[in-house]
Design a binder for these strands. Structure first.
Lengths: 185, 185
DNA sequence: GGCTTAACGCAAAGATTTTGCGTTAAGACA
DNA sequence: TGTCTTAACGCAAAATCTTTGCGTTAAGCC
């Protein structure tokens, strides 16, 4: 009788997954994104290419998986004592991280996944961080804010500029976006 | 002596370019983006694959080129008689066009170009349309608006949602973004 | 320990991408 | 119009990547 939950997630599979992730990270550090191929990753990880093709299907899909892992925040947003400061600090850090060379590559890799299906979880990570900031503000007795509005007014301009413009969002404009979201002051 | 301007842009080259563009458009209409390959395009266009590899370098680069062509607006923005109406009409149409299945594919293709180097011209097309609306408003004696601010407050949320969220920007939120850009009223 | 089977390795087959070389024709100039 | 130069193309071989079938390993469950 077939037992349920027949997806294997430990032992050899887990070992291979972390080896592959490490191999991708190492190869990306050494530059030459353009010439990166799936057989290269396989060789570096000590695995057959066919294994990677079967598990991830594609090089873009693999890169998107790795990128999403690396985008997962390690720490909760910095606590500056007040909502506006928290949001400003978070936005500046996010812009800086994503504006860096590896950061831009991560965003692009996430979007490149077949069907773009890693993009939604990527936005969810951001929204979760904003929700933490909002909850903390309300815990202080502050007014809080609408996370969806913040996605439109803060995150969207930052990311759009990274993807489509030559220069990242200037600090001054970030401040005026904060005004529009929270009201001046 | 080598003469300057040795880039050929007419005759056979132009003929091949339009044949290839037409072939890509036809194959995209017939679905199966995922299985689309460069040799397929070459066969449809009646050209050798090596020609395409030499001219475009890549399938993503070719798709990005085609997508950018198709994003070029055919008509100036609709004239509703007032700035706010012009902006609302343009934004709704843009959201609709880019939210459609082929529209989403076009945006993704533009971003997928090696180095993402087609994204900047893509944003420039949008900015040009907004500049037309602004100039027309000023010609009427209206106040006009800052195109860069409109990119941050209108275009960025629309595109960000298309790329990262499950649902496009709701009409109600678009109206509130217009409020934030032009002031309520 | 034994059973089931998901996941892997290997290698052959198939498809794509690259590359060298001869040929065609676009653009410049007389 | 004719000639010259050379960018761009076609062809085909070579290199590389991707898929697929099949035997083997080991994870998860009793």
């Amino acid at each position: 009788m077939t037992t349920r939950e027949m997806i294997r997630c430990g032992g050899r599979s887990a070992r291979i997954q972390s080896a592959v992730h490490a191999a991708v990270a190492a190869l990306l550090r050494e530059g030459d994104r353009a010439g990166l191929t799936l057989p290269m990753v396989a060789a570096r990880a000590g695995v057959t290419p066919s294994t990677l093709y079967r598990r991830w299907g594609d090089l873009p899909a693999l890169l998107a998986d790795v990128a999403l892992q690396r985008m997962r925040p390690q720490e909760p947003p910095l606590d500056t004592g007040a909502l506006r400061g928290d949001l400003r600090a978070w936005a500046e850090q996010y812009r800086e991280e994503m504006g860096s060379e590896p950061g831009q590559a991560m965003i692009r890799d996430v979007l490149l996944a077949p069907g773009g299906q890693q993009a939604q979880p990527c936005a969810a990570l951001v929204a979760a961080q904003l929700a933490v900031i909002d909850a903390r503000a309300r815990g202080r007795g502050e007014a809080g804010f609408d996370v969806a509005a913040a996605m439109d007014l803060l995150v969207a301009p930052i990311v759009y500029r990274l993807l489509f413009a030559e220069a990242p969002l200037p600090a001054g404009r970030l401040e005026s976006l904060l005004d529009r979201l929270l009201g001046p002051g």
